[in-house]
Design a protein around this nucleic acid. Structure first.
Length: 203
DNA sequence: AGGGTGATTAGG
DNA sequence: CTAATCACCCTC
């Protein structure tokens, strides 16, 4: 419909524009819905922090496709993280869903997350996927068709959005491409990227 | 503060 | 084939 076409067009924009626009949006999977409070932009071939920086591979294939699909990846031997693909086909840009607040399906989310405080249910990219029940099988699904759905809300006021460096990256730690809703308690704790070599002269 | 965990990737 | 790396989470 018209609304879907508008959303698709919006997602086809630059990840730097799409990322803040996704704040406040709802991701829904079955009974569980999460309101996004924190995201990060990844700009494909131009971005040393992106999975698509070096080359097109089986893993990052989905990112090269049309906007609005889900890019999932398996991380650190046990976690799943999810991105919304943005930009035009071939650009391989995406927005990582870093954290959110459970707005529906608390019971289901809690049972998936084991022992967790309410605040930590979807605080962090892997926790968010776990709470929503997103697995690697959802890689490539169209967020406008389901079973995982994206429901956009009104834009979050620019004044309510904070930006800063992305979390946990070795490449391009200087780009302030992390966006979150100012003052939200569900935003993940900032962890600076690990250094490859410790500083020579701590002072 | 440290470890678990296994896919993915580049390189020989 | 090998070894290094990794957009993380949990427990100590």
């Amino acid at each position: 419909m018209a609304a879907s076409a508008e959303l698709r067009d919006l997602l086809a924009g630059s990840p730097l524009d799409v990322a803040p626009r996704l704040l406040g949006a709802v991701v829904r999977h079955g009974e569980v819905a999460v309101r996004l409070t924190e995201v990060e932009a990844y700009a494909g071939a131009d971005d040393p922090g992106s999975h698509a920086y070096r080359s097109r591979t089986p893993r990052n294939e989905v990112m090269f496709g049309p906007a609005g699909h889900l890019y999932t990846y398996f991380s650190y031997g046990m976690h799943v993280c999810a991105n919304v693909v943005t930009g035009l086909p071939g650009t391989a840009s995406a927005v990582l869903l870093r954290a959110g607040e459970i707005v529906e399906g608390h019971d289901v989310a809690r049972s998936r997350r084991g022992s967790s405080t309410e605040r930590d249910l979807a605080r962090g990219p892997a926790r968010l996927c776990q709470a929503l029940g997103i697995t690697l099988e959802h890689g490539g699904v169209d967020l406008l068709a389901g079973p995982v759905l994206l429901e956009l809300d009104e834009p979050t006021a620019a004044g309510a959005v904070s930006t800063g460096p992305r979390v946990g990256l070795r490449g391009a730690p200087d780009r302030p491409w992390r966006f979150w809703i100012t003052g939200e308690s569900t935003v993940s704790a900032y962890r600076p990227a690990k250094r490859l070599t410790p500083p020579n002269q701590p002072r």
